[in-house]
Amino acid sequence: MTTTILEATGLIKRFGGLTATDDVTLAIRELTCHALIGPNGAGKTTLLSQLSGELRPTAGRIHFEGRDVTSADLGGRARLGILRSFQITSVCDDYSVFDNVVVAAQIREGHGFRFWQAPRGVRALADTTRSVLERTGLADFGDVPAGVLSHGQRRQLELAIALAMQPRVLLLDEPMAGMGPAEAERMIELLGSLRAEYTIVLVEHDMDAVFNLADTVSVLVGGRLVASGTPQEIRSNASVREAYLGHEQEDVA
């Protein structure tokens, strides 16, 4: 249970003068949920983008299953099984929910240079798609164009697309952002059910969700990793309280 699947060492990302990721070393263990928390602008998205291959780090290395993947781009890492969902939802609006997922399922099967057979009609792909939709609570919306879904449903679809790819590591950036309480509740439940089967890196502001779901929590402040540990450890960590939780309470006050 404790093999490291994804590992960042000495990761640094600078935007001009700003150091958005400041010497972060992080190990994600297989089949665990690893949460990244931190105040706004702490560099969570930036870190996630480097893990997913969207951003190239200024310095440092990233290893996936022992392999150096630092120079692989977003697509290259997706082919390895590292998938991300975006903070801003990104699906194919003209396609039905079913088609969005079936395309992902077929991409997972290999190249798409096949010109005759319609993937919708392929039993295996349709089955995968249906089970993913079932799982993500979209089973009743298969024929609905993605463009008319509610915000929360679009986030579910985003997750369904990622699941259809049967990823090794799922990078989720604020999957609950902008959802109503009921929708968020469902999403938390769903993520909870995925925990046993997938390795998840979760960026999230909702502390309840984080402490519920995560096996490990890492705290970023100003690009630096200030603490890392089990939810209990983080909750009781004085420096975290001060640097982050305390800070948040000030914000609220």
């Binding site: 699906v91 798409g112 005759w116 697309i161």
Partner: peptide, 22 residues
Amino acid sequence: SRFGMIVQACRQNERRVRALGV
């Protein structure tokens, strides 16, 4: 076809398709 579905997905959201490794 499989090819056509990917091509049409590209039209709608190329970033998404590329992010899936295509």
